[in-house]
Design a protein around this nucleic acid. Structure first.
Lengths: 153, 153
DNA sequence: CGAAATTTGTTGCACCCGTAACGATCAAAA
DNA sequence: TTTTGATCGTTACGGGTGCAACAAATTTCG
């Protein structure tokens, strides 16, 4: 018989703090919240808007569907982010000559300026994040993440 | 002069797909979405409700604040999850004799039954997740995560 | 003791989110 | 060509979320 205070503990219990889905969410939330301060406080951007900016900054010109594919966002998120950045005059829509359903999205000079301002800050954030752990742990983390990403593709 | 198609690329660009905050969010979302099917499809639980159930199942009796601390949830999330599980008669609130601001939360037999049903399924999910990558990558991932968690206290 | 500050949990509010439905357009097949 | 099915992007809707404000209770401190 068990000596536990209640029947759900012991072998029947799950240690939430060691449960992988929980740990991923916790870490992603913490990191995301820290990083969000950069684009949220400075420019009032939401995360989808930041991702849209980052994707267009990286690739130049894309359709909304391509943005969603590259940044792992639902098409409604992309649609709303495009509306928001367009209203700020940070991106423009150019009708596509071959497919009238889509627009080619590209950053304006103002949008590109914000992008170029944020990139080094983002790099610095990531570098400082990784600097908190040892080189061995860093290598392990990156290898492990890469493997899991490969397995999930 | 650069040969790139537009001015934001090259050294000025950030590869979103290699950016750590993005990668964490992407992985956490994917894992979370998969796992949510288990408690959402089977019992119509939200993630905060699942975490509340898991925390009370693990510890037996706690206050709302303690639940939030252990499961990394904002107090409003906990409050709403408690209301939801109480309505289903999966938990009860017992007034605390020493502090009348708080209630001691505990699963009912019905709640504990659902918890015990979900635990092995959760374990199985985690095990199958880790089984997708090699033992070396698995060890690396766990070591890296542990290190980052330690650094984030 | 009594006032001020803190803690606990709930609720109103504005906002973000995914689902489903939709119109428009394109592609494939008859 | 005409029909059928797929794709693209937007929007209404129901529901989840954090912030701020709040009441009640406790703790701290003069």
């Amino acid at each position: 018989m068990s000596s536990s205070r209640h029947e759900t503990m012991d072998a029947a219990a799950l240690e939430l703090e060691n449960f992988l889905p929980y740990r991923f969410n916790r870490l992603a939330d913490a990191v995301s919240r820290d990083f969000a301060r950069i684009y949220k406080d400075r420019h009032g951007l939401t995360r989808p808007e930041w991702r849209l900016l980052a994707t267009l900054g990286q690739y130049g010109t894309m359709t909304a569907t391509a943005v969603g594919r590259h940044s792992a966002m639902h098409k409604t998120k992309v649609s709303r982010a495009v509306t928001a950045l367009e209203r700020r005059l940070w991106l423009t829509r150019r009708p596509d000559g071959a497919d009238r359903r889509v627009d080619n999205l590209a950053l304006t000079k103002a949008g590109a300026r914000v992008y170029r301002e944020l990139v080094p800050i983002a790099r610095d954030f990531e570098q400082k994040l990784l600097a908190r752990i040892s080189p061995q742990d860093r290598a392990a983390l990156l290898a492990g993440l890469r493997a899991l990403e490969r397995a999930f593709g």
